[in-house]
Write a protein that binds this DNA or RNA. Structure first.
Lengths: 160, 160
DNA sequence: TACTGATGATCAGTATACTGATTAATTATC
DNA sequence: GATAATTAATCAGTATACTGATCATCAGTA
């Protein structure tokens, strides 16, 4: 009899489910109203000011139709600004606002704590090994999802 | 600089994203219209005929409000039957239909293939280790989500 | 029987994720 | 410079997941 616990797909869903729950608990406990997805988008825009939505989506592996709603909500909260690009009138350039930057910095400890809680059942060695294996499996399957991770073209950045 | 790849929460989301994509590709390729969530529910009802929705939700770790819609769609496809329980008129007893059973058996090879594809980037040892670590992390975090996994009370079943 | 609390199911509302289509603008080609 | 192909963004629609509320029923108690 095939148990759910023998199916990596089930474990994937369950692990992600817990990850979201832990994130929400920590971030709300710290007094913020940010989802994991919104946090990742906000952080990516902070690191890459002026980025367009497609590139942002590739950076954090979101679907292009998902990013529209995420940016909508971040803009509505006053954490992001979306303005038309001057170089390409189809594109929107994203900038983090001052409030967005403050929020990002203030919420970061809670996000860190959530990451630790998610793997708190494992030893340090196990945590590192889990992450290595996830990274390896994800790398092999990257192109299989509609929202693969895309490297940003590293012109002018040296932190590779 | 904290990379996304150092955050287990990000890896969790990404791994689950790929799991769903691979599942859809395989199952649709085999000519079926079933989501991962619907497949798990169908399989659980097949193994536990007459189960109520809350117990089903606990078995596969779905939220109680999610299971309503999932069962709706499975019933609409003619794969499940939902009838009022005689013992408890609040509850719905779920039964798999003949077509549901046929579908379940016919789709299983595609589901198996999807599970293998999801971890195809890893060696056999790594696959087993990844699953062990996921199970361990999930067990430690089980109660943190609104939809924890619940053991079924094993009266009359010996496959524990 | 009336009351209280708990439980199974559902509903309204919100936020990811996706499919597939559309719109507007850019790039490539002739 | 007109045309075709591509691209950035959005939209409509569907399916998870969740929060919080409600309704009906059940169990326990006075």
């Amino acid at each position: 009899m095939k148990d759910n616990n023998d199916m990596p797909g089930h474990l994937a869903r369950r692990f992600q489910q817990i990850a979201v729950a832990v994130f929400h608990a920590e971030v709300e406990g710290a007094g913020f109203d940010l989802t994991p997805v919104q946090y990742a988008a906000l952080a990516a825009v902070s690191t890459n000011p002026g980025i367009d939505q497609i590139t942002l989506a590739g950076l954090i592996a979101y679907d292009r139709t998902t990013i529209t709603g995420v940016v909508d909500r971040l803009a509505q909260k006053g954490l992001l600004e979306r303005r038309a690009s001057s170089r390409d009138r189809r594109a929107r350039e994203l900038q983090i606002t001052e409030e967005g930057q403050k929020t990002l910095e203030a919420v970061s400890p809670a996000v860190e704590t959530a990451q630790e809680l998610l793997v708190r059942g494992l030893t340090g060695d196990e945590q590192r090994e889990l992450m290595r294996l996830l990274r390896k499996a994800i790398a092999a399957g990257n192109e299989l999802s509609r929202a693969p991770l895309r490297e940003i073209s590293t012109e002018g950045s040296r932190n590779g």
